[in-house]
Amino acid sequence: MISANDLSPAELAALLHFHADAGVEWLLEEEAIDRFAEFEAMKAARRPAAQAQQQRPAAGERPAPGQAQVRPNAAVRPAPAERAASGPQPAIPDGEAVQQARFVAETARSLVELKTAIESFNGCNLKHSARSTIFASGDAESGIMVIGSAPSAEDDREGMPFSGKSGQLFDKMLAAIGLTRSAILLTQVIPWRPPGNRAPSAAEMDICRPFIERQIALAEPKAILLLGNFSARFFFGENDTIHGLRGRWKEIAAADCVIPAIASLHPQDLLTAPVNKRLAWNDLLAFQAKLKSLSLLRN
């Protein structure tokens, strides 16, 4: 068995990232607990009670041969359906949650108010499994908006979009066209990380849609860069892959705003398949040219 002491710092960091991506959040208890000794003590405590129960004569008629005797103190286990029903349930029905999300979003008069409203909203199950609420950050007055897909495990831990290795690559992508995080408004389509980085369900997307559309309406960007397959499909309403959706300017609507938007590959896609960096670079050049034509970026 390999001990943590045998690992190099880089190997230990990679192992910790692996566990974090798998959903492990706590590796140690506050105090050491011997689970084996705890289990043996539990069995020893139950043994005398079980023996006494077996020796106790049953009240009334004796059970027929082969008939199980019910112990008076035995706990009644719920049926499987009852156990499933007792698990986590949606805070409110999906249809009602969508209506509440729309109301919450429409009543927010600023990004600050919207952020507070989203953090207080409990109508989406994704919030109950996420650590952080990811909201827009950066310069809302820049006229430039970049929208990612859903928060990753690193985003959820750090409380900000595009964290970890994909965030480092994203910073380099911005720098290549003369931008920084602080000079744009950066956000995600979904404010909470889906468990295990799964794709959000249709109901979850419907609930979260008013929030991202209101962010766009309040920021009033002049151009939007969509990163990732999910983000492109969400706004373009198409089912093609990111390779079919990227590199072409389209218009998306949010409230009374109609904004030109272009989609490209997510930095995580580029880490997985570096051969696609050439495609992403072409998209970034097209985005840079649009910003210059709108006088949002100096030549």
Results as ranks from 00 to 15, higher is better:
Arg233Ala: 02
Glu40Gln: 15
Ser132Glu: 01
Ala150Ile: 02
Pro161Cys: 04
Ala97Val: 01
Ser231Gly: 07
Ser182Gly: 15
Cys124Asp: 05
Gly164Pro: 03
Asn122Tyr: 07
Arg246Ser: 08
Asp283Arg: 08
Ala84Lys: 12
Ala50Asp: 06
Ala219Thr: 15
Leu226Gln: 00
His19Glu: 14
Leu271Lys: 10
Thr180His: 12
Asp171His: 05
Ala199His: 08
Ala50Val: 11
Ala44Ser: 04
Arg77Asn: 13
Ser137Asp: 04
Ala44Arg: 14
Phe18Thr: 10
Glu29Phe: 09
Ala44Tyr: 03
Asn282Gly: 09
Arg248Glu: 11
Ala117Ile: 01
Ser110His: 08
Gly159Tyr: 00
Ala136Trp: 00
Gly196Asp: 09
Ile190Trp: 00
Trp249Lys: 10
Ile147Glu: 00
Ala223Arg: 04
Phe36Gly: 07
Glu106Asn: 11
Gln215Tyr: 06
Ala261Ser: 11
Pro90Gln: 02
Ala49Gly: 07
Pro57Ala: 13
Arg56Ser: 15
Ile216Tyr: 00
Ser129Gly: 12
Pro200Phe: 03
Phe121Glu: 00
Glu25Met: 12
Asp21Val: 15
Ala136Cys: 08
Asp139Lys: 12
Trp192His: 01
Asp34Ile: 09
Ala203Phe: 06
Thr107Val: 07
Ala232Gln: 07
Pro88Ile: 01
Thr272Ala: 15
Ala263Thr: 04
Leu186Thr: 06
Pro90Tyr: 07
Met173Asp: 09
Val104Cys: 02
Ala13Met: 13
Ala150Lys: 02
Ala85Tyr: 04
Gln53Trp: 06
Ala255Gln: 15
Lys250Trp: 05
Phe39Cys: 14
Leu27Pro: 04
Asn299Gln: 11
Gly60Tyr: 02
Gly138Arg: 04
Lys250Pro: 03
Ala153Asn: 07
Pro48Cys: 13
Ala108Phe: 05
Ala49His: 15
Arg46Asn: 11
Pro65Gly: 05
Phe103Pro: 01
Pro48Leu: 15
Arg198Thr: 13
Ser132Tyr: 03
Ser86Thr: 08
Ala263Asp: 05
Ala44Ile: 03
Ala261Asp: 02
Ala140Val: 05
Ala59Asp: 10
Arg83Ala: 14
Gln53Pro: 02
Arg35Ser: 12
Lys115Phe: 06
Arg109Asp: 01
Asp34Trp: 11
Ala140Cys: 07
Phe287Ser: 00
Ser163Cys: 09
Leu174Ser: 03
Phe287Trp: 03
Thr116Met: 14
Ile184Cys: 02
Ala68Trp: 07
Ala81Arg: 07
Ala84His: 09
Gln54Arg: 10
Ser264Met: 12
Gln288Arg: 14
Ala105Glu: 01
Glu38Cys: 01
Asp94Phe: 13
Ala280Val: 07
Asp156Phe: 01
Ala280Thr: 09
Gln54Lys: 13
Asp6Gly: 08
Gly87His: 13
Arg298Cys: 13
Arg109Lys: 12
Ser8Lys: 06
Met205Asn: 12
Ala64Cys: 14
Ala153Met: 05
Phe103Ser: 14
Lys290Pro: 00
Thr133Ala: 08
Arg131Tyr: 06
Leu218Asp: 00
Arg131Asp: 03
Ala14Gln: 06
Leu186Ser: 04
Pro151His: 03
Ile259Val: 15
Ala280His: 04
Ala84Met: 13
Ala85Leu: 11
Gly237Asp: 07
Ala41Cys: 12
Gly60Trp: 00
Pro194Phe: 04
Gln268Thr: 14
Ile212Tyr: 03
Ala203His: 04
Phe18His: 14
Ala223Lys: 00
Ser120Cys: 09
